[in-house]
Design a protein around this nucleic acid. Sequence first.
DNA 1: CGCTACATGTAAGGTGTTACATGATTCC
DNA 2: GGAATCATGTAACACCTTACATGTAGCG
Lengths: 208, 208
Amino acid sequence: MARSDQTQTAVLGALSIMPMSGYALREEIKNTLGHFWSESFGQIYPALAELQREGLVRRQDDVSGRSSPYDITAAGTARLLELLSEPPQHNKPRNGVLLRLFFGRQLGPAACRRLILEARVQAEQQLASMTAARAELAGGELGANIPYALITITAGEHSARATISWATDALAILADAEHAPAASSDTPGGTPATPPATSPAIVPAAAT
Amino acid sequence: MARSDQTQTAVLGALSIMPMSGYALREEIKNTLGHFWSESFGQIYPALAELQREGLVRRQDDVSGRSSPYDITAAGTARLLELLSEPPQHNKPRNGVLLRLFFGRQLGPAACRRLILEARVQAEQQLASMTAARAELAGGELGANIPYALITITAGEHSARATISWATDALAILADAEHAPAASSDTPGGTPATPPATSPAIVPAAAT
DNA sequence: CGCTACATGTAAGGTGTTACATGATTCC
DNA sequence: GGAATCATGTAACACCTTACATGTAGCG
């Protein structure tokens, strides 16, 4: 049981804040937890079905089945507390951008620069959306959950800012490498090698 | 084809730096890419088999099968470039710590504080290991790949530092919430509840 | 009347992990 | 000789996404 249940945790948690339909659950998870969590329909509906079987969740209008929201039960709240108390299992990291950059010598400096700039743009967007989320907090239905939401929003902001300032450093490292290429070594075959006679002017995006 | 191939990318990339056995591949991936990538044996061996079938990789001592390292071929290098050129597919985020903190009202402030402190400890360890990795860089076999490795190490450092400073902010938010709990709402059943007493003030989080 | 959003589900398929099975080599 | 490490693989399972299938409700 303790194996995954991560979906159950997210679903029960969301329902602990307010009753919702499966559809709304997915929307909420996407909008509110989006920057650190995700679930798809293919997981939410089976999870809801199982939770209902176990009596951790019920539909308010149980008989008619007519689009009534799911509601967490007392047993469900207890289970949620259990799940939340388990040690967090951290994901295997898989960062496609860093993977590509690590093998950047094969890819060439120009493509690397593009990857970094793209990552920076995304981080800036994330930062903006975190700021927006922070503004919306007061108007929302979160009540006493607000400080906890704020903690996650702050995490998103720190993470986005870290990416932005990393991008600056990374561009500088790339530029240095091009000006003073490591003495040894063949340039790898077939790649769009750096042209001779460069005048790159790397756009180092202002001071640190 | 463009679907996953992420494992192929990592394997070919690693072999583009130096020939290795499957076992060594896993070690290298764990040690060197560990902070942003991971692969398990169950993926590496099948991937190697397929790459060999496709002629992208070969064993230097093909006949005897005697623990000779795998070696990337010219075709393999070309394929690697292709794979690296594909747009990076970012993972669905799944941060167990933030999930637990978001539903922190159910979990209680004490447990939340523990989670944050634990995350900070891990980030400090990561930061230390990044520093160590940076020191080892010069001594390693990476050659012209050094600047690229440096870019990923820098990413790890920024990320770790972001987590550390987030932890500070998060603890402050938690403390504020306990001093001035949000006005409305029932405290959830069973949890180590926050005391009553009101004063809305949403805590706009300390200076950046 | 058709488009969009709400709503619920399933089936197929890909991805990735774990545990098991096996054996060689090296070092103490 | 026994332990640790190197080395290779597989099979079962868990997880998750995608695409499909279906239907309702409201609105312009």
